[in-house]
């Protein structure tokens, strides 16, 4: 399938856009029936670092795909970098849009489809029609940022889970996007690799990029975000605030299925508390 980009963008320039993302009453239905998102209102400013918190099936991945303009909302209005997302999803100015907004998928096997890591990292810049020298420079920079220059000639299936995640992020960073959307970047990683990746994400945020990270791992949230948007199991925004406020609201986290009440026994007496390791160790 070929979607040719329009030669002249009909949308306002990104610089003129007031917000990076603006969503009003956005709904998304899978197959026209199953509700994935239901009435999302959200505004994300340039340079913000936002964590999208939600349980499995709350619509985090769908929201990120919408923000990346690869699917269009079923209902509501949605603008990204001043452009109508439905038009971008249809291919209008999608070249330029995807140079500015990059999405790292949850499953790195989806993102790493080429024969080598370098080919995957080079895929985006090549599709944008950059010169070979420029492509090489973008790839070298992205590989260095993710500390995987030594893996550039390796096949993706030879990599460990953490290396795959880094390669997947590098494959998006090579486009030098201003906005980076990360879908569960630390899922299924061992602790050391997870914290290495958290540090890399922090560095990207400190570099001025707008970061939207979907996760359900509470302990990484204060480190990677200054704002938290909680999606509920009803596929609506349950809360929007600073990490300290959100993480301190026990009822909210239970309602969002991000923690659960845990009943067990200690020395013959039973009691309940949040299933939270820190709390448990402090007892």
């Amino acid at each position: 399938m070929t979607i040719e980009p329009m030669p002249v963008p009909l949308e306002p320039s990104p610089a003129a856009a007031a917000a990076v993302f603006e969503l009003h009453g956005v709904r998304y239905l899978y197959g026209g029936r199953q509700t994935a998102l239901d009435g999302i209102d959200l505004r994300i400013e340039r340079g913000e670092r936002v964590a999208l918190l939600g349980a499995n099936g709350s619509g985090k991945s769908t929201l990120l795909k919408l923000l990346d303009g690869i699917i269009a909302p079923s209902d509501g209005t949605m603008r990204a970098l001043g452009r109508d997302v439905a038009a971008v999803a249809d291919g209008l100015d999608s070249f330029r849009f995807h140079r500015e907004v990059g999405l790292v998928f949850q499953d790195p096997d989806v993102q790493l489809f080429s024969a080598t890591v370098f080919d995957d990292v080079a895929f985006g810049p090549l599709q944008l029609g950059l010169a070979q020298d420029e492509v090489r420079a973008c790839c070298d920079e992205a590989l260095r940022q993710m500390d995987i220059a030594h893996l550039s000639n390796r096949a993706p299936f030879e990599l460990s889970g953490g290396e795959k995640k880094r390669a997947a992020i590098a494959s998006v960073l090579s486009l030098r996007p201003d906005v980076l959307l990360l879908d569960e970047p630390t899922a299924s990683l061992d602790p050391r690799t997870k914290w290495v990746l958290v540090n890399l994400i922090r560095q990207l945020g400190e570099g001025g990029k707008t970061l939207v990270t979907a996760t359900h791992e509470l302990e990484i949230v204060p480190l990677i975000a200054e704002r938290v948007v909680v999606l509920g199991e009803n596929r609506r925004v349950l809360a929007d605030g600073r990490p300290a406020e959100i993480l301190a609201d026990r009822d909210l986290l239970i309602r969002a299925n991000l923690i659960h009440e845990h009943l067990h026994e200690h020395g013959g007496t039973s009691h309940s508390h949040d299933h939270d390791l820190e709390h448990h160790e402090a007892e």
């Binding site: 980009p5 795909k65 690869i70 070249f95 998928f105 985006g124 599709q127 944008l128 070979q132 486009l175």
Partner: peptide, 18 residues
């Protein structure tokens, strides 16, 4: 999903290689 990942990085149907 792979097609979506390709589209998200600017793929429009024609292949360019290094």
């Amino acid at each position: 999903d792979v097609y979506a990942a390709m589209a998200a990085r600017g793929f429009t149907g024609s292949i360019r290689s290094f």
